[in-house]
Computed example of a mutant assay.
Amino acid sequence: MPLTDSALLVVAKAKGFAEAEGIDLTLLRESSWANIRDRLAVGHVQVAHMLGPMPIACNLGLWPLAARTVVPMALGLGGNAVTVSNAVWELVASEGALPDLVPSTTGLALHRVVRRRAGQGLAPLRFGVVHPHSGHNYELRYWLTACGMVPDQDLEIVILPPSLMPDALASGALDAFCAGEPWNTAAVLRGVGRIATVKAAIWRQSPEKVLAVASDWADENPDALNALLRALHAASFWCGAPAHREELAGLLSDPAHVDSPLDWLRPGLAGDLRIGPGLSMRVPDFFVPHASAATFPWKSHALWFYSQMVRWGQVSHDAASASTARDTYRPDLWRRALGPLGVALPAANAKVEGALNEPTPVGSAGASLVLGPDGFFDGTRFDPDSLDAYIASQAER
Rank of each mutant, 00 (worst) to 15 (best):
L169N: 01
A347G: 07
V42S: 15
A270E: 09
L225H: 07
W238F: 11
E396R: 15
V362Y: 02
A320T: 12
L356F: 00
R29K: 15
V130F: 11
E90P: 04
T328N: 00
S236K: 06
A48F: 12
V114W: 02
P207I: 02
P289Y: 07
G16M: 06
V158C: 09
G278E: 04
A350V: 03
V70K: 03
G193I: 06
P384A: 02
L3Q: 12
A348H: 10
L27W: 08
T83I: 09
A389T: 13
A170K: 09
A186K: 11
P99Y: 09
E220H: 11
P255T: 12
L273H: 00
W203G: 03
G366W: 04
R112D: 13
R245Q: 14
T26V: 12
L60A: 05
A168P: 04
R336E: 15
P284A: 13
A41H: 15
E90L: 12
Y329P: 00
A389S: 15
L189F: 09
G43Q: 08
I195N: 01
D5L: 07
S32D: 14
V113S: 11
S32P: 14
Q120D: 13
W203Y: 01
S292M: 13
T145E: 15
R311Y: 14
L91V: 08
Q308S: 15
S280P: 02
P182Q: 08
E139M: 11
P207C: 02
L252Y: 03
W143M: 00
M281I: 11
A173S: 13
L140K: 05
G240A: 10
N59Y: 10
F286E: 04
L189S: 09
A97L: 11
G240V: 04
V42G: 11
K199R: 10
C178E: 05
L303V: 03
A227H: 09
A395I: 04
